[in-house]
Design a protein around this nucleic acid. Structure first.
Lengths: 327, 327
DNA sequence: CTCCCTTATGCTCAGTATGAGCATAAATGG
DNA sequence: CCATTTATGCTCATACTGAGCATAAGGGAG
């Protein structure tokens, strides 16, 4: 029996108008702020991005190309995040639908230069996600978020959907109990579904219920904020089992700086002594012999990343504890 | 200053012949074997796959559609793996290049039905990756792999490349020391680069050196074996921090069956008592009150997955130890 | 020059989790 | 009834974690 196979498997003629978008979430950390490179274009903020073109050898090449054209930033570590093509990405174009796929990437760079172009600027990512920064304790926005989400769960079309929604809320926001700092995307998607976030509200036919005001937190074009949420989630997860933080650090740094970087990314504070113990016993860094007194208090030793750990330990990373307060 | 933005950002006209392929790595476990659904087509084995079509609402819908047409299998849990479009995916088509992207998915299904179609069959994934199964101890294929890879590292064009290669080998295969069962993709890619695997050998202009024979392990069409490697890697990683194994289990099962499933997926044996302790103390399962004596020895309690853990623990999963021998 | 403030470092201690084994229970097939 | 096989219970030493106490060593204010 012949299976239903496409005529000539790859390239069976373009039966739909297709375009492939490439977008980059470019992350750097300066001081206490996790930064993302944003460009302003047509009244909106967006991620550096552009369509895949014929002379791009690979997807990643195309991405680097657009980023350099738009921001003059050269990328270091780059990894693919996700390909969006599912929701709200169909646009009617004359009589037949044009489909727009979009491949999102995460890139890490060392220093946040002043971003050559006036239209490209480094922004703290908590500007877009104010509810994700728990370093100063529970963010105030949550006072607006919580009732809004609860109302959304309560007004579900039926009981089944309602309890499903309640479960998702509790999972993502941990109202009451635990909170998982990695579930950035789930949290954003709940806010999106609940209509608490402006993106495409009208197109989706979602109405703001009287009691539900839009949240603070800056919007981005298209689904770029969703991409950013995904990038944050991925990075927060990844620093725990791969030494990627070091991609964001200068060649030599203090343990305090390293800790503040990790805290900036994960949005929580860590117990200082335990953090150092972890880094040292995993032998993630080595001495440079130098020290710096630019940290305010007692001068700190300067260390550098010890690349050899990659070969020694199976999953070297900065494990985060359940909580931990600055002391 | 005007930034170089594409004319009308999405859908800036199709400037290249594009086709989007959708491929599925569909996994099930029966008894001791991790199975993948493969279809035979044109002398090659391949994953269920086909191009994205105009009437597919979403990428995932398109995927489910092709899978059902080709294998009559209905998918449960589905997640996106990666979008390939980078290497060897350019095909000359007349005078302008036609680009073929391909979005790979991982799907988990409960039972391995006899696969309605004669051309679609469940195959143990170790058939394609015999070097990944360490349950019976070190796989014999490694005796062929190790010298082949070492030779490849030794014949590098220069010393820098050579030591880089040696480092990658040691990282992926852990010759000498540790081995990380998750690095399935890295291992496959090394074998690919070293020309020890037949895929596209000729196109790549890689020659088999005299001493290096091709390895046992069945080839697949295109880059499907790479996708499978990625799927295995992802699944092996994911069972540790999310309760996805249960997507592969029947509604009720014994701890022994659960353990054998985990071992099948991860390719290593676990210490039985510690495994049960882990599952129980994490409260991943609950009693059904029933028991079964189909396991050969003393009858075993039947348990079921306790969905509530999802709400209780931040990252419930089956953590694997460093090694562990069957006893 | 001291005292105070700030960040860096050292070290301890109890509670938990992990890796390995010993020992017993309860079926099944000669 | 015994040997074999898988299921379960429990123990023990060690490693890892979460919290905190205590000290060190700069800079700045008075």
């Amino acid at each position: 029996m012949a299976l239903p196979f496409p005529a000539a498997h790859p390239a069976s003629a373009t039966d739909t108008a297709l375009s492939i978008g490439l977008s980059a979430v470019i992350v750097a950390v300066t001081g206490d702020d996790p930064k993302v490179l944003a460009v302003r274009h047509g009244g909106h903020e967006q991620l550096p991005s552009g369509p895949l073109e014929r002379d791009h050898r690979t997807l990643e090449q195309g991405l680097r190309n657009w980023v350099e054209r738009q921001t003059h930033q050269v990328l270091g570590h780059v990894e693919q995040l996700y390909t969006f093509g599912d929701r709200d990405r169909r646009e009617t174009d004359g009589e037949h639908a044009a489909r727009a796929l979009s491949v999102a990437y995460l890139a890490l760079v060392r220093e946040a230069r002043p971003a050559g172009d006036a239209d490209a600027a480094w922004e703290s990512w908590y500007r877009y996600f104010p509810w994700e920064d728990w370093r100063e304790g529970r963010p105030a926005v949550l006072d607006a978020i919580e009732p809004g989400l609860r109302a959304w769960a309560a007004t579900a079309p039926n009981a089944g959907v309602g309890s499903m929604r309640a479960e998702r809320l509790s999972l993502a926001f941990g109202f009451g109990q635990s909170r998982d700092e990695e579930r950035v995307l789930e949290r954003y998607e709940l806010l999106y579904e609940a209509g608490l976030v402006p993106e495409g509200l009208r197109e989706r036919g979602v109405e703001l219920a009287p009691g539900r005001a839009l949240l603070p937190g800056v919007e981005m074009a298209g689904d770029h904020r969703r991409m950013l949420a995904l990038a944050i989630a991925r990075l927060r997860a990844k620093i725990k089992y791969r030494p990627v933080v070091f991609e964001l650090m200068p060649p030599t740094f203090t343990l305090g700086q390293l800790q503040r970087t990790v805290e900036a990314l994960s949005g929580v504070n860590l117990h200082k002594q335990n953090f150092r113990r972890l880094i040292e016993q995993q032998r993630l860094v080595e001495e440079t012999g130098e020290a710096t007194s630019e940290t305010g208090g007692r001068p700190a030793r300067l260390v550098r990343f010890r690349r050899e750990v990659l070969l020694e330990r199976p999953a070297p990373g900065v494990r985060l504890p359940g909580a931990g307060g600055r002391r």
